[in-house]
């Protein structure tokens, strides 16, 4: 159990470092940098914890990660007055199956079709989980944001 926790911590730190690098490469503003890094850490935890401790499959892990990520991104976007994408892009990096997509294509290029199907299936499940999670949160947050905007406009008028 202790080994698993240490392995989880190493994994979360490594994913967060990678996401911090992504935030730098994409020129994120200094005022939101650490919030975006925290977003990536939470999304990584949302992905790794269900997979390691609850035997969740790739779809469920990605779904939980996306729900955490999109909820946090929406709240912080509202508070920091930035587009939610600014949080979502660095935050989604730990869960996004970019590496697996490469391994899928590598298997295709080298003619290893069993590996191609196996990796490709995981890529599709993770991608679908991420997309469903983000769309789910957006579907809930959009009317809430619209209501808050209307209320703010009314306040400004009075």
């Amino acid at each position: 159990m202790t080994d698993e926790i240490i392995s989880l911590i190493v994994m979360l730190i490594a994913m967060t470092v990678g996401s911090a690098g992504t935030a730098m490469v994409f020129g994120i503003e200094k005022r939101v940098f650490w919030w975006a890094v925290l977003c990536a850490f939470l999304a990584a935890a949302g992905f790794e914890i269900p997979a390691r401790f609850f035997a969740a499959g790739p779809f469920i892990s990605a779904l939980v990660s996306a729900l955490v990520l999109a909820s946090y991104a929406d709240i912080m976007a509202h508070l920091l007055k930035v587009p939610a994408t600014v949080m979502i892009i660095p935050g989604i990096i730990p869960a996004v199956p970019g590496g697996r997509l490469y391994f899928t294509m590598q298997a295709a290029v080298s003619g290893n079709m069993d590996e191609f199907y196996s990796q490709g299936r995981t890529v599709l499940l993770i991608t679908a989980g991420l997309a469903v999670g983000i769309i789910g949160v957006t579907a809930i947050s959009r009317p809430i944001n619209a209501y808050l905007n209307k209320r703010n406009q009314k306040k400004l008028k009075t």
């Binding site: 994913m15 470092v17 996401s19 690098g21 730990p94």
Partner: peptide
């Protein structure tokens, strides 16, 4: 910033894999 960012990405994800 671009280079350091890319170095961090490579470092982090090499450990992840």
């Amino acid at each position: 910033a671009f280079t350091v960012g890319n170095m961090l990405i490579a470092l982090g994800f090499c450990v992840v894999w």
